[in-house]
Design a protein around this nucleic acid. Structure first.
Length: 779
DNA sequence: GGCCGGGGCATTTTT
DNA sequence: TGCCCCGGCC
């Protein structure tokens, strides 16, 4: 097959053919970036690169799978099989297992998913007798995760003034201690969380130049997809691997970077050129997906963002209709509006349900819409609910698997030591755990010889513990000689999981049974597949490896029936639909209240809106409600200022009497407490530094804020039309801010919703404030 | 050990 | 409003 090049446009082809050093492909929405990546790999394969010398990194298993499939249509499947293509996590899990000895692990370490690690954090917070209202496990988890993503180990954390100060300021000084204990517990349990995989990979490469050299030798070409979503740990891995040969090819769209809250750092892409001076930048600017109007509208929106790589996305598709803006009285009415429109369009133009997607900022918004769609008998499917591998019954079974491979995996032990019920209750577990902590051994050590550790348990409990121990031992013995599917079936039967599920006659139990069965099927399939690849005895470990990093939402199955798709905008990234509804376009909802006042956060929200718009191929309809239930209370809302960020010539305010109300018209009461610094100050990117980086300001800098919405009373806000302070501001003006105190305006920039002032405060230093939200009194 | 009800709480989530 | 967690009760 040679004609793959002919399917490309000029800029795509240029990127594929260029083979002379670092390449950055800036791929606008819908510009065929996957095509470029797959063709690039095919091209490399055809030009002498061995498949095992190509490393291609993606963010999702789905992306890796699809890419492999597409390459297979160009190149022989047998060759494609040996490509190193997968997610960052799965590739380096494999690597770390192989190199485990260098990092003090054994190759059979297992993986804590986020729920496991959250549980462990919860346990530690309890053990330290900290208030979990202050040390909210989710918050602690995200702090630890951000630290790891920035390659700050718990020891480095301890030495990091900035972080410690931040923790002090936020009245959570023990984060570092929790982090330490957490690491210690993970280490003795022989487990890693997701972030740890990348952190350890970096440690491995840093401390073992010979190992790094080996992989540098092997991977002659490194490619990475969705580069705007990489965090520092991932970026550094890529950097290290291609430092010598400089054969690095990264693809991404800075305008679609929407995961900074998970540690993704858009600078990895924005500053790629600084890091590779010889880097060649390719821009894919032709959008093949959407109508001209949609592309132009999206462009006019994203132009409001400051930091971005310059590019002009254009479409040569038909012009298409304007983006329709609809308003409704309430969130409920919004649902009716959407469903009515769907039915109209189906009637008028012959669309079917599957041509529609309803996108929203938060999952909570789906409920109202669901209600209405159900009433109107419109079929729909919701994405992003619990994924298969997060279901309780599946996690239970996998916990057994994990223990068989790695009995020190504490979260798994705790999960199933009493499931199915075998009379080992919380009290016993607590006792065992305490003993383990004090003796500084693993829970499993105590379980295997409770007498030795002098656990205060009665005979009966001791006996039950012993049975449990022998059961696991038995599984471990059998595992050595059985294939993954045999041992899986054996475990499910003799642990009595099967019995328990059959016994229970509730409806949920039936679906649980089906899910467990489905897992068994998946194992069988996996074993068969591997056999076809010539691997005779597929072990449980291999299946676990595959599945531990699989949170894939492959809910597609035969659910491909004709249904309207509902999902958050985040999960819609990468997808496309003929007709897209973006609902809930209101200030404080979209952009989210959490982003208000923080320019960087607002820009990310704007990119999110950009992603939403560019999902649409033909029609895009945005809606907002004037009143919305949130957290059980009704609130008056205002249309999102993002709507105004789109040039009005691309919009069609259908049956709206008034134009969107701007922030100016908000009652004064709702403007309280809504200003704080934005984080636009130049960060020292951790590009050049090694593990010790202080890129923490941005990661940790976002202040926590309380929602400032006020419940709706019988307010009539006509009288409150006070314009905010931005008009009278000039450089040199003295102002007072209620949190930062007195200061002087040193610079003004931006216009409209982006207008900002740099203010030098006497006590709080220099801050950039978004004038829209800053409450400033002039002196 | 399992069930019920009150209280507190609420972004986004590729691995 | 709905979910989750915890404490109290059987």
């Amino acid at each position: 097959m040679e004609d793959y090049l002919s399917q490309l446009n000029d800029s795509q082809r240029e990127a594929v053919l260029y083979d002379d050093g670092p390449s950055l492909v800036v791929a606008g929405a819908g510009s065929g970036k996957t095509r470029v990546l797959t063709c690039k790999i095919a091209h490399l394969l055809q030009n002498g690169y061995q498949p095992h010398s190509i490393l291609a990194l993606t963010f999702t298993n789905k992306a890796a799978r699809e890419m492999k499939q597409r390459i297979t249509s160009i190149i022989d499947e047998y060759v494609v099989r040996y490509l190193w293509m997968g997610t960052f996590h799965s590739i380096f899990y494999r690597t770390l297992r192989r190199e485990a000895v260098h990092i003090g692990f054994t190759p059979d370490f297992t993986i804590y998913d986020s729920a496991d690690s959250k549980n462990l954090i919860k346990t530690i917070i309890k053990e330290m007798q900290l208030d979990d209202k202050i040390y909210r496990p989710g918050m602690v988890q995200s702090r630890i995760s951000h630290a790891k993503n920035a390659l700050i180990t718990c020891n480095a954390y301890e030495r990091n003034r900035e972080l410690l100060n931040y923790d002090k300021q936020t009245k959570t000084p023990f984060i570092n201690e929790i982090y330490k204990r957490y690491q210690n517990r993970c280490f003795t349990a022989g487990v890693m969380d997701f972030d740890e995989l990348l952190l350890q990979t970096n440690i491995l490469f840093r401390d073992h130049p010979d190992v790094l050299e080996k992989y540098r030798e092997q991977f002659r070409y490194v490619l990475a997809d969705e580069y705007q979503d990489t965090n520092f740990a991932q970026h550094l891995i890529v950097t290290r691997l291609c430092e010598k040969h400089q054969h690095v090819f990264v693809v991404g769209d800075d305008a679609q970077s929407i995961y900074s809250f998970r540690g993704a750092n858009i600078d990895n892409m924005l500053r790629f050129k600084d890091h590779y001076p010889t880097c060649k930048v390719f821009k894919l600017e032709r959008n093949y997906r959407s109508t001209q109007n949609i592309v132009d509208a999206a462009n006019s929106l994203i132009a409001k963002n400051k930091e971005q790589i310059e590019k002009t996305v254009y479409s040569e598709n038909k012009k298409g209709g304007k983006i329709i803006v609809l308003s409704s009285y309430s969130d409920y009415e919004e649902g009716y509006l959407v469903s009515a429109r769907i039915l109209d369009m189906i009637r008028d133009t012959g669309y079917s349900y599957s041509d529609f997607a309803i996108l929203y900022r938060t999952n909570a918004q789906s409920r109202v819409i669901e209600d209405v769609l159900r009433k109107r008998m419109i079929k729909y499917k919701i994405y992003g609910s619990q994924s298969f591998y997060q279901r309780k019954e599946i996690k239970d079974v996998l916990a057994y698997f994990r223990i068989v491979i790695n009995p020190t995996d504490e979260e798994s032990v705790k999960r199933i030591i009493n499931y199915p019920a075998r009379g080992i209750g919380d009290t016993t577990i607590d006792k065992l755990q305490n003993v383990a902590i004090h003796a500084n051994v693993n829970l499993w050590d105590v379980i295997s010889s409770p007498l030795e550790y002098d656990v205060a348990i009665n005979k009966g409990t001791a006996g039950r513990l012993e049975n449990f121990y022998h059961m696991i031992k038995d599984f471990q013995d059998k595992e050595k000689t059985m294939t993954a599917s045999e041992i899986a079936e054996y475990i499910i039967k003799s642990s009595n999981i099967a019995g328990t599920l059959i016994h229970d006659l509730s409806i949920e139990s039936i679906s649980r049974r089906e899910n467990v069965q489905e897992l068994l099927n998946a194992i069988n399939e996996f074993v068969v597949m591997r056999r076809e690849e010539g691997i005779e005895n597929v072990s449980l470990m291999e299946f676990l490896m595959e599945v531990s990093l699989m949170t894939d939402q492959d809910n597609d199955k035969e659910e491909n029936a004709d249904k309207v798709t509902m999902m958050t905008i985040h999960s819609a990234k990468g997808l496309e639909f003929n007709n897209v509804f973006i609902i809930g376009m209101e200030n404080e909802l979209f952009p989210s209240q959490h982003s208000m006042g923080n320019l960087r956060a607002i820009e990310e929200e704007r990119r999110l809106f950009y992603v939403a718009l560019t999902r649409a191929k033909e029609n895009c309809i945005i809606t907002y409600a004037k009143n919305r239930y949130r957290n059980g209370l009704s609130y008056k809302t205002t249309p999102s200022f993002f709507i105004e960020d789109i040039e009005s010539k691309y919009l069609d305010f259908r049956n709206n009497i008034e134009l969107p109300v701007t922030r100016k018209q908000l009652p004064e009461s709702e403007k309280q407490d809504s200003s704080f610094e934005s984080h636009t100050s130049a960060r020292n990117p951790a590009w050049d530094s090694d593990m010790q980086l202080s890129e923490t300001h941005r990661q940790y800098g976002a202040p926590q804020r309380t929602p400032h919405l006020k419940p709706l009373k019988n307010t009539d806000n006509a009288a409150n039309d006070k314009s905010p302070a931005l008009n009278g501001l000039t450089v040199g003006r003295k102002v007072v801010h209620d949190r930062f105190g007195e200061g002087e305006v040193v610079a003004l920039k931006g216009t409209g919703s982006n207008a900002m002032a740099t203010i030098k405060f006497k006590n709080a230093g220099e801050k950039n404030l978004l004038l829209k939200y800053a409450i400033l009194k002039m002196l």
